[in-house]
Design a protein around this nucleic acid. Structure first.
Lengths: 201, 201
DNA sequence: GTCTATAACGGGATAGAC
DNA sequence: GTCTATCCCGTTATAGAC
């Protein structure tokens, strides 16, 4: 995901590198299918050395999940407080949401699929961030319905459909594919905000 | 999922029951997190007895995934060949798709999340069914755009967004929740076919 | 068709040297 | 901060009795 090159001999490794390597493996093979030795191999170190940086394999997973659920709350959600109508603010959020999904694609997939592998405490933290995000989106949809900008009949269901459509892109959106993420974002904003939410004008 | 009750002593078990029990466990904990003993325990038999019915744990997973990807192709896709416009046929497909998702909820989640645990042969089979399904939906969207019934600008992306929104319901749709699956289906058909695809009239 | 017993292996994690 | 060595436990799967 970044940094020079690991290959052989005695390497020096940062928590960042561990999280990046683990996320890629977890996303491809699944948390329980990946051993601590796999992660260490990927970094060119021994399994035991991981435990200098993290107390357990689950702590590595928790770091991945925390990052990918906190970042949207801290970086994307503030867009809903900007000036503009619910429609323009949600359009901005969709765009930023997709940008984040591209930037943190593997971490996002891990956070989505490996919730069950977290300790109850870590899972509760992650789910609380996720619910907070969903609630703010739903409230903005509701505001747009109240103001007459949107024509959707059930704001809560519309918010879920919108987020599921956005998040689903993580499974197939290929930055090197025939449609660039920017193009996909443009088309999606129009389909979701104008179409699905029924924005007037 | 069905059948009388397993509890203690020497039980008699069918492949159906094994698949049902395994699917529930795989969906909740993940394929690699569930041991063959867990599955056996759930059925009131010993781990070794499973191997009388299936050659391996992966064969059980493959049976789950096969079922949940073949059924939509065989039962839901034919709706696209019925009489009517692309819009009415896609509306029927969305409804049937959601019905299937509710009926096979746990199997669907397993089929979505544990693809990586399948052998290459089994995975290829499952993905081929899935691509076939997606292609037929996309072609119907395209037909509706050509006939002027839909107004979306990119039929392929619209089909992906539509399917991702439908499939996303598997993560949160609760048959005993405040909105019944029937109500969700009604709202979703209007949001997706009328809204997202931009059906006229 | 299920049982007991076990083979063969890999998992996460720790101790203590360097 | 990484190493070697090791512990202990759980895994899938098989053999053969009942």
């Amino acid at each position: 995901m970044s940094e020079p090159v690991p290959l052989s001999g005695r390497r020096r490794v940062t928590p960042e590198q561990i999280v990046d390597a683990a996320a890629a493996l977890f996303a491809r093979e699944g948390y329980h299918a990946v051993g601590t030795r796999h992660i260490a191999d990927e970094l060119g170190i021994r399994g035991a050395s991981l435990y200098h940086h993290y107390a357990s394999k689950e702590e590595i997973l928790a770091a991945i999940c925390r990052r990918v659920t906190l970042e949207p709350v801290e970086e994307t959600l503030p867009l809903l407080d900007d000036a503009g109508t619910p429609g323009t603010r949600l359009a901005a959020l969709c765009r930023a949401h997709l940008e984040h999904l591209v930037r943190r694609r593997v971490e996002f997939l891990v956070g989505l699929q490996e919730l069950a592998a977290l300790t109850p405490e870590h899972r509760a933290e992650v789910e609380s961030h996720r619910r907070h995000y969903q609630r703010r989106v739903r409230d903005t949809v509701t505001a747009g319905v109240r103001s007459g900008e949107f024509t959707v009949e059930d704001p809560a269901l519309a918010a879920l459909a919108l987020l599921d459509a956005l998040n689903g892109t993580a499974r197939w959106l290929d930055p090197a594919g025939s449609r660039s993420p920017d193009v996909v974002a443009d088309v999606y904003v129009r389909m979701l905000v104008d179409g699905l939410l029924g924005r007037r004008n």
